[in-house]
Design a protein around this nucleic acid. Structure first.
Lengths: 199, 199
DNA sequence: CCTACCGATCGGTAGG
DNA sequence: CCTACCGATCGGTAGG
């Protein structure tokens, strides 16, 4: 009863995600945002307490989605190649389903105040660790090649799934599953033609 | 004689690259920039004509570097796998040698005015085309697997070389050559262990 | 390269 | 959710 209507706040967050991703956080004014929602600048503050609160909410929401997508996978008893493929699918799906907030997440986290900034940095480390463990597991179990540099391999995988925010277009011919399938297959089997394997 | 000293302008561009990459274009004020160089805000305009001119210069300079690095490779008579490896090396080297302007290039190009914006978009397309041709060549010559999706393969390669701007640290143990070598080798040969190839 | 300043716009608030 | 407003800061200029 004393709380403002919930949907309105979500509308504000959605509009903010879109504007922040298109123009950047600092280049978006509160009046721009209010205009999108058909209200005056000052009226926003009936629903939120500050501009930075919006950024924090957007970034936290994105973090949580990555977290939830990946960490339910952590304990599952899958061979490393299948697990990598599934992790890439889930990771790309989060990006694809949240193009705006993913873009904000990747571009604007540097503008957060120290506490929120530290939280994001921590999240990044956790995701890194997830992929490194996954690759280590694969090497240990003999699914991946023995000589792999764990860190570099993780960077390569992360490049593929993260960079999708720059080129992926939702609603196109390829779903997140297709992209992940193709990327994972190329990564696992390599681009090189098999050396004339005529039996 | 009527021109302002050249080095000063380069100092301004260097500082601007650093500040724009750390804080973002819109979050950096001309007074911040002037302060870095030990002068007053208004004094900058003895050397430059506008803030956007700085952004345009930084982005153009980055574009030119990518261009020069890759397009001298275009006609060279190398097998596709060697050419891919060399292209990745040069691409990563440009990123590594210009971490600040590369970051500005990837993050701030959306804030350019229409003409400069169109130029950057055009550049992106050209680089895309370069990698697609390279991969097509490889498939045609039988160096790469026949079934490869050209577009997706190019995206995968571009992910690896572009995303380096987020994690690479110049002066560390790995030079651009090492990174490219490792990434290219993983991409070409795949992560999967060979299926028990005891002869 | 500085001092002093311009109009515009910013995030946010008071009071209703 | 609006009107009206706050102090601060913005990019840029005039005149020296």
């Amino acid at each position: 009863m004393t709380e403002p209507a919930k949907p309105r706040r979500e509308q504000i967050l959605d509009s903010a995600s879109r504007l922040f991703s298109e123009r950047g956080y600092h280049a978006t004014s509160m009046r721009d945002l209010a205009g999108e929602l058909g209200m005056q600048g000052g009226s926003l503050y009936a629903h939120i307490s500050s501009k930075e609160e919006l950024l924090i909410d957007i970034v936290n929401q994105a973090s949580r989605q990555f977290d939830e997508a990946l960490f339910t996978l952590r304990g599952e008893p899958l061979p490393a190649d299948a697990k990598l493929k599934e992790a890439m699918f889930r990771h790309i799906r989060v990006v694809a389903d949240n193009m705006d907030s993913a873009t904000v997440f990747f571009h604007e986290w540097k503008h957060l105040s120290p506490e929120a900034y530290a939280r994001v940095t921590g999240w990044r480390d956790t995701i890194d660790a997830f992929y490194r463990e996954l690759i280590e597991q694969g090497v240990r179990e003999g699914v991946f090649r023995p000589g792999l540099d764990i860190k570099m391999t993780a960077y390569l995988v992360l490049s593929a799934v993260n960079w999708a925010y720059t080129w992926y277009r939702p609603g196109g011919a390829l779903g997140p599953r297709d992209v992940a399938e193709q990327f994972a297959e190329m990564l696992l089997s390599g681009l090189r033609a098999a050396p004339a394997a005529t039996p």
